[in-house]
Design a protein around this nucleic acid. Structure first.
Lengths: 216, 216
DNA sequence: CAATTAATACCACAAAAGTGGTACTCAGTT
DNA sequence: AACTGAGTACCACTTTTGTGGTATTAATTG
């Protein structure tokens, strides 16, 4: 019997998943949460699942942060990320943090069940598309370590704040006014953000921020 | 017994919803689809549901287009849109097309069931947050019809193509080269896109495109 | 056939974004 | 006490976006 916790900010999804998983004898959904903070509180009370299914796109705290915290504090918990999209560097970063799986939501339920079982047994489970990326990624990593960008990615809180304001269509000048900062400062932040995110322009930044669940 | 069709490109979500709905005597899920084209084909064969639950964010064809086609061709079908986000003008536009409901995925299953029932009876169902927007929106619509932007929104295929390329971080020049167009043309397209989408800059455009399921 | 829409192309100017630096301060860490 | 990371600030320069027009063509639709 595999004990599972589900986290996703879409309640219907959560309930649907619970219904599906509960039909199987192998799984027990011990709790569901719509945000990472509640989850952390629950874990702190000593309620530890075998597998944690974690949606990546969450508003309050991004799924990535939650995953990292959980893995650091409770290394015995197997974490499977669920996402609509995939992003190469992103998956790599998460793998270094120790996730056991990364599945796309376009995956069917049978595959999901199989994935949970594999992970519960200590193995790994990644969507085929994701596997491609991983394999390719690791190949290029060995060859061109230097060409690889800053993979100690973490955007600071301030930077994420900036990203959101940029997403709200504010210009650097407007952001500077709003935050009582110099326009120079804001431009520096944006510059750093783009370097960290490895994007070329605003379009890429906003798109990636969306994929990473940083905005909306 | 309400006949339901579900459309969402996340298979797990689809299967979860089906499981949940099937537990109730009131509902019968007659089919599920991961894209709009298959749905249209199925409807064309004469398989008509009472209620169509339609995810808005879909890659191939956006949920909005699907909704409009369905409503035009099969006015008897009640359409409920499911979305992660809401956007004022967007909801208004859809309402003019005749949708019966617009729910956020953060809605719980009980509310969803209630919504389906209401809609099946010929009523409407909108998430509370969405209601706020509608009420506010209609207020301002009466007052400042002129201030309201172009609500005959439809982006052309070419425009959507451009949006995707912009999202891929290409500049106007690069897009022009790629598409064998003059840079002027590309700029004109972008200008029109921004007017239609009612956004101020690239950041807004990409964000909205994401929300509308136009990219990724 | 007239009207509309999509796609194309051009112009000129203003406003931002993007590039590539340096550098200071404050907290927290080693 | 030295180091690091986050946040702040500045400079100079180039490129791209964004604004606000006009206009032609082909295709579609009323």
């Amino acid at each position: 019997m595999t004990k599972i916790i589900l986290v996703d900010d879409h309640k219907v999804f959560l309930q649907g998943m619970e219904a599906l998983l509960s039909r199987s004898e192998d799984f027990e959904v011990i709790a569901t949460f719509t945000d990472g903070l509640e989850l952390m509180r629950y874990l702190a009370e000593g309620n530890l699942p075998d597998v944690l299914l974690l949606d990546i796109e969450m508003k309050a705290i991004s799924g990535v942060e939650v995953a990292e915290n959980v893995l650091k504090q409770y290394p015995s918990i197997k974490v499977i990320m669920l996402s609509t999209y995939f992003s190469e560097d992103f998956v790599q970063h998460l793998m270094e943090s120790g996730i056991s799986g990364y599945l796309l939501k376009s995956t069917g339920f049978p595959d999901l069940k199989a994935a949970i079982n594999k992970v519960a047994e200590g193995s790994f489970a990644f969507s085929p598309d994701v596997m491609d990326i991983i394999v390719k990624g690791f190949g290029s990593k060995v060859k061109t370590k230097s060409a690889s960008h800053d993979d100690s990615n973490p955007l600071t809180e301030r930077e994420i704040e900036l990203i959101r304001l940029i997403g709200d269509e504010l210009t650097m000048k407007e952001i500077a006014e709003k935050l009582y900062l110099s326009e120079h400062t804001v431009k520096t932040h944006r510059k750093n953000i783009m370097t960290k995110m490895d994007v070329k322009n605003t379009a890429g930044m906003i798109k990636k921020a969306f994929i990473l669940g940083l905005i909306e």
